[in-house]
Amino acid sequence: DKPVLAIQVLGTVKWFNVRNGYGFINRNDTKEDVFVHQTAIKRNNPRKFLRSVGDGETVEFDVVEGEKGAEATNVTGPGGVPVKGSRYAPNR
């Protein structure tokens, strides 16, 4: 398990590439950019086929120490709701 650095952090999605399945979230508290992989998205938009977060979307997440620095995990919308997802992700 990766060491946990912070829990229930709010941030804004800087960018997310649906095809490659990753992007970055900017933390509201430290203004640090945190890597996010599609496997870290815990509550996906049920209408979306692929797990994703949308550019500019506000999300809540935990921060863990990854191999290359801070990574987001347990990604949801604020308060644990499903994320909205990327407009580029296909609908079901």
Rank of each mutant, 00 (worst) to 15 (best):
I25V: 13
R19S: 10
N44A: 11
T73K: 13
V81K: 15
D33G: 11
N74Y: 02
K48S: 08
E67K: 15
E60V: 14
G56L: 03
D33N: 09
K84F: 08
P78G: 02
A89K: 08
R92C: 12
E57L: 01
V53L: 15
V64I: 13
V63M: 05
G80M: 02
P90A: 11
G54F: 03
L50T: 09
N74L: 01
V53G: 00
F61L: 02
V64W: 04
A70Y: 15
T39P: 02
T73P: 04
G66H: 04
N74P: 00
N74C: 03
I25F: 10
R43Q: 14
K68D: 05
V75K: 00
V83L: 06
G85F: 04
V63T: 01
D55W: 06
G66I: 00
G80P: 03
F49N: 12
R47S: 14
G80K: 06
V75H: 03
S52L: 03
P82V: 05
R51I: 05
V75E: 03
V9A: 13
V83H: 00
N45T: 05
S86W: 04
T58C: 11
R47T: 13
V53R: 00
N44I: 08
H37N: 08
T39A: 08
T73E: 12
D55F: 08
N20Y: 10
G69C: 06
R87M: 12
A70M: 15
E60C: 14
A72R: 00
F61T: 01
N45S: 07
F61K: 03
G69Y: 04
R87L: 11
N45C: 08
R43S: 07
R92A: 10
R87N: 12
K84L: 12
E65V: 14
E71P: 00
N45G: 07
Y88C: 08
E57A: 01
E57Y: 00
R47G: 13
K84V: 12
S86L: 03
V81M: 13
N44V: 08
K68Q: 12
V64E: 04
Y22H: 15
P90K: 14
F61H: 02
G80T: 03
V83I: 06
A72T: 02
G54T: 07
G66N: 08
L50E: 08
R92W: 10
S52R: 03
L50K: 12
P46Y: 05
G21S: 10
T39S: 13
F49K: 15
E71V: 13
R51T: 07
G85E: 03
G69H: 07
V34D: 11
P82K: 04
Q38H: 13
S52C: 07
G85D: 03
T73S: 14
E67L: 15
T76A: 05
F16V: 08
P78E: 05
R87C: 11
E67Y: 14
D62A: 03
N44T: 10
W15G: 00
R47Y: 13
K68N: 12
T76Y: 01
G54Y: 06
A89W: 05
V83A: 03
E65R: 15
G56R: 06
